[in-house]
Amino acid sequence: MINLVINGLNVSVEDGSTVLEAARFLGFPIPTLCHVDGLSPYGACRLCVVEIGQGPRAKLVSSCTYPAEEGLKVRTASARVVRARKMILELLLASCPQSKTIQDLAAAHDVRQQRFKQEYEDCILCGLCVRMCEEQMMAKAIGFRGRGEKRSIGTPFDIKSDECRLCGGCMYICPACQLRCTYNEPENAICGGCANLSPPCIEKDQFDDMMCYLDPCVACEIQKDK
């Protein structure tokens, strides 16, 4: 067992636990976007930062990846942490304003302004879908590509992957691009299963066979609107 102090409270956790697990065990709320129990920790969204260390050596680390260490002193909501989280949420809102998850988090953290140029992206590259596909669905159909500004998620060469079983796990787990079905561009689609039905979804049974997460079918909804 490892003993550490979180916000002044002593806690003992099992070897190999993370700071996030220890803090949640004590009931301290730490917001996360790229963390889901059951998937390996990744540390991409940085929302879960906490402050460790003392004096000039104090620093922020992502609690979802930082291992609980003996004698560690953690502050989960210091002024520095709160300031950083608000800025991260402001950045998220500036880029992906349509995600309900991000909107809720921003509201909960009292983010009242957005000072950057507004963008309308969906993906925040948190990597949940990549890990879902690899670790839970054992498919490894999608992955990260490129770096920096050009980083993206998708299949190799943007061709529908033979590894993809159209499970929809990637869409299910996504905190930002919920209900984004790329049916309209079947050649770029990660799934695109329904596009192979002709005419789309006329046979409800067939749609059920695909176990699509999007129920009701988005393709049908689009047709209905027309």
């Binding site: 990744y42 540390g43 991409a44 969204c45 940085r46 950083a84 800025m87 991260i88 950045l91 998220l92 925040i124 590259l125 948190c126 990597g127 990260f144 490129g146 770096r147 920096g148 500004e149 050009k150 980083r151």
Partner: peptide, 9 residues
Amino acid sequence: DESCGKCYT
């Protein structure tokens, strides 16, 4: 261009 792109910040 050269950030790996993993950390959002």
